[in-house]
């Protein structure tokens, strides 16, 4: 009996701990959704309101009508999609070369890739800004895309993944008269779906949520992304419109949730991956 009791106690404890951790992560989301449905008054009352008296669906309409919302959304989509597509075009062959070729200087070059992903972005902000300003790119979409075309972390992660793929598969494909492009496209890429999904999701989230860089690179609404647009909802007539800001944020987060729902199966695979048999 005692061992049974101990087992139940352990199970209960583990369930409680899981629930606590879950709440820590989920609470900000719930708070955001709740605030997005409140009136301005409800957002400022003490103690705070959690369930709005009447859900204010209009907040979403306000958020979208407060500025050129469609322009912001289009900019976000264009910037993020362009970055993702080009990152993959650059990253997959680079990772393949680092994983499967022994060319002169491959160690040095890979070291440079690692260096690129170790240097904090803040260090390079000013020189990159000055350079792009010199090129006359400020206030276009280009500076939001071009500096992010090579994903050093992605190259590193994908190289590790490619290295686990047995050499014989590549050799077998070569004996099957496959070109290197075909080996990458038909063999390496389908086998690396979990890693690719992980990299895609991380990259998507970080660029979709980019705030600081577009802030300094843009001067007009026509090239601003959603993040800036939503931040600008905050101030009207000296009062912070939290309910509107949160409504905007809910809209901003939805694509990320969809992407996660789509990728999560692969991401789990990427992290529990233990070799191909």
């Amino acid at each position: 009996m005692k061992t049974m009791d101990l087992r139940y106690a352990k199970l209960t404890l583990s369930a409680v701990l899981k629930a606590v951790v879950l709440m820590i992560f989920v609470f900000p989301f719930l708070w955001m959704v709740s605030t997005s449905l409140q009136t301005l008054q409800e957002t400022t009352t003490v103690p705070p309101t959690f369930v709005p008296a009447v859900p204010q669906w209009n907040n979403f309409v306000h958020a979208m009508q407060a500025g050129p919302f469609l322009t912001y959304a289009r900019n976000s989509v264009v910037v993020t999609a362009a970055i993702l597509v080009i990152q993959f075009v650059v990253m997959i062959p680079a990772a393949y070369a680092f994983a499967k070729y022994r060319f002169a200087g491959h160690r040095l070059l890979f070291g440079l890739v690692l260096l690129a992903f170790m240097i904090p972005g803040q260090v390079t902000f000013i020189p990159v800004y000055l350079m792009l300003a010199d090129w006359g790119w400020i206030d276009t979409l280009l500076p939001q895309i071009v500096p992010f075309l090579a994903n050093a972390f992605g190259i590193f992660l994908l190289r590790q993944y490619f290295m686990q793929i047995p050499e014989e598969l590549v050799e077998s494909a070569r004996l099957d008269n496959a070109s290197e492009f075909k080996i990458i496209w038909k063999l390496m890429t389908p086998m690396s779906r979990p890693a690719l999904a992980t990299i895609a999701l991380f990259s998507f989230v970080s660029h979709w949520n980019e705030y600081f860089w577009p802030l300094i690179m843009t001067n007009s609404n026509s090239v601003r992304p959603l993040t800036l647009g939503i931040a600008m909802l905050r101030e009207t007539e000296g009062i912070t419109n939290w309910h509107i800001v949160m409504a905007g944020n809910v809209v901003l987060v939805i694509p990320i949730l969809i992407a996660y729902a789509f990728c999560s199966k692969w991401i789990v695979k990427a992290f529990v991956y233990s070799g191909i048999k």
């Binding site: 047995p166 050799e171 004996l175 389908p190 191909i276």
Partner: peptide, 13 residues
């Protein structure tokens, strides 16, 4: 030439 590998090297996908 064609080759059969020790671990077969079959394309898993």
């Amino acid at each position: 030439v064609a080759m059969v590998f020790q671990n077969y090297a079959i394309y898993p996908t």
